Simulated assay, not measured.
Amino acid sequence: MRKFVILAGLMISGLVQAQALEPQFEVIGNRVQITYFYDNGRVQQQGFYKDGKLDGAWTSYDEQGNKLAVGTYAQGQKVGEWSFWSGSQLSRVRYTDNQIAYVSKN
């Protein structure tokens, strides 16, 4: 009986893992928007790919749906100003040539 309970537990945990949410893809113009999800169904990240590289706006969220990061990629490199949240603190980071050029904290 004990072996049966252990085997049943392993099978159930395998089924739960197999039902993890898969990323969603949507073609928009000449780019592909991809959305990744947490196990709770909330969006984890959303952004665009073009020619196999990150391209365009990207947003990351925590498991409660709060924004963690917002920024832009161009041909796979971070560009411009990105915003990062840690609790109530906001940091802004400016990227030049995929390198941090400036950081400000509020």
Rank of each mutant, 00 (worst) to 15 (best):
A74E: 11
G71V: 01
Y49P: 11
L90W: 00
A20Y: 05
F25M: 14
Q46C: 04
Q75I: 05
R94N: 03
A20R: 08
Q45E: 15
L90P: 06
T96C: 12
L54K: 11
Q19A: 13
A101R: 14
Q19T: 05
V5G: 12
D97F: 09
Y102H: 12
V43D: 00
A8V: 13
S83F: 02
F48M: 10
M1R: 11
K67F: 02
T35W: 08
V103C: 14
K78S: 01
A20P: 04
S83N: 00
D62L: 03
K67G: 01
K105T: 14
D62G: 07
Y61V: 01
Y102K: 12
W85D: 00
V43T: 06
W58R: 01
E26P: 10
V43K: 05
T59F: 14
I34E: 08
Q33A: 11
D51Y: 15
W82K: 00
W85G: 00
S86A: 15
W58K: 02
V103M: 12
W85H: 03
Q64A: 15
Q33P: 15
Q64T: 15
G9I: 05
A101K: 11
V103G: 13
Q64S: 15
D55A: 13
K50P: 14
V103E: 14
D62I: 01
V27T: 15
G71T: 00
Q75T: 07
A8E: 08
L15A: 07
F25P: 15
G76H: 06
F84K: 04
S13N: 06
V93Q: 01
L21N: 03
L10F: 13
F25T: 10
Y61Q: 00
A74S: 11
L10S: 10
W85L: 01
G14F: 10
Q89M: 12
Q24I: 06
K78V: 00
Y38W: 13
G87T: 08
A20V: 05
E63H: 07
N106R: 07
Q17R: 09
Y36F: 13
G65K: 03
L68I: 02
L54F: 15
D55Y: 14
F25Q: 11
Y38R: 06
A20N: 07
N66C: 02
F84L: 07
N98A: 09
L15D: 03
Y61H: 03
Y73R: 06
G52D: 14
W82M: 03
L7S: 05
A74N: 09
D62A: 04
Q64M: 15
Y36I: 06
